[in-house]
């Protein structure tokens, strides 16, 4: 009798303790990789050289001016891009969307081209603002367009998004080509943290702020993920929550674009992996997605710095290769689970 009553209670507990362990592992990884990231580079910055030289040394200067900003930027970008993907997936109710499969990134890139053409001297904040506005337009256009696609057509939704992105990207390329800006545009959009130094990365904090916004409104996004009818029945202002979500996605996309460039697949892969482990309750998922996203990008960034040491390869390349492989695995795994 006692064993009978104990069995159903112990299963969730076991699941929860396993989750706790994965969470702890994630935290340890993040701290470990973050610290490693501080000491990876061409110049001699090691704990020993820091201790030997004191606060006035070259090593300390480098740490404060380059290594810390870079690591902070990488962590924030990873965390916020994952969140952007998660929120977009809730708004669209589709697991295969993220800023770069919905045209949002392409719209934001068009925004940066517009600033290059009309306001070449604009401060980075202004560039980000313009990119964010374009990103917002992109999110709106995408949400309008997918309204005509049935929710159950899971793969059609990102396909429509990719096509939309393709159209916008070709417009961007056309004007960039005509105005001889193609090269600087490519430099802009190629995801890399190589140019991140003190004074040139602080905007990613805005993306970090959006993560906080997402966390505060987490339950609302979960309810939105149930669909408009559920949301309305539960007394939620559907349009307003969708609007908040659109702003979160657009601002994160723009902030990441102007500081680090395009980083593909991240917003897709990270929320999907987390969904497999703990499900889609946004309140529970936000710290996981942010943590895993940060770990993923920090690891990729370290890899990008050491693969061809002392040279760097673009981060987007590393993320793209690993992310694409993970995405394929998820896709094939999903299929096997469906029937």
């Amino acid at each position: 009798m006692t064993t009978l009553t104990a069995t159903p209670a112990s299963t969730p507990t076991r699941v929860r303790s396993r989750r706790t362990w994965v969470g702890v592992l994630l935290g340890v990884l993040l701290v470990g990789l973050g610290v490693t990231s501080l000491f990876v580079g061409v110049s001699d910055v090691t704990p020993a050289s820091l201790l030997a030289g004191g606060a006035e040394s070259d090593a300390a200067f480098l740490l404060a001016a380059s290594r810390i900003p870079r690591t902070v930027a990488v962590v924030l970008v990873g965390a916020s891009l994952g969140i952007a993907g998660l929120i977009l997936q809730m708004l669209v109710r589709n697991k295969f969307v993220e800023p770069s499969t919905t045209g949002v990134t392409e719209f934001a890139t068009l925004g940066t081209l517009v600033t290059m053409i009309f306001f070449p001297g604009m401060a980075v904040v202004g560039k980000m603002g313009v990119a964010a506005v374009f990103g917002l337009i992109g999110t709106w256009v995408f949400l309008r367009v997918v309204r005509f696609v049935p929710v159950r057509q899971l793969v059609l939704v990102p396909l429509v998004g990719l096509m939309l992105g393709g159209v916008v990207a070709s417009v961007t390329t056309f004007f960039a080509y005509r105005l001889d800006l193609l090269q600087s545009l490519q430099q802009w959009s190629l995801g890399s943290f190589a140019s991140v130094v003190q004074g040139r990365y602080e905007l990613v904090w805005v993306a970090g702020l959006m993560v906080v916004v997402a966390w505060i409104a987490a339950d609302r996004f979960s309810v939105i993920g149930l669909g408009e009818e559920f949301a309305t029945n539960l007394g939620l202002d559907y349009r307003r929550v969708v609007a908040i979500g659109m702003v979160v996605v657009a601002v994160i996309t723009a902030a990441v674009l102007v500081t680090a460039g395009m980083i593909p697949f991240l917003g897709l892969v990270v929320p999907n992996v987390v969904s497999l482990i703990i499900g889609d309750n946004v309140r529970r998922a936000v710290p996981w997605v942010a943590g895993l996203g940060a770990v993923f990008v920090v690891a990729c960034d370290i890899l990008a710095r050491v693969v061809r040491f002392p040279y760097e390869i673009p981060l987007s390349l590393v993320v793209g290769v690993i992310g694409a492989a993970l995405f394929l695995w998820l896709l094939l795994r999903k299929k096997s689970r469906a029937h």
């Binding site: 109710r93 993920g225 149930l226 969904s275 499900g279 889609d280 309750n281």
Partner: peptide, 11 residues
């Protein structure tokens, strides 16, 4: 009711 999100019964 088509709920795409992976939510538990309790959620």
């Amino acid at each position: 009711n088509q709920v795409a999100a992976r939510l538990t019964v309790q959620d």
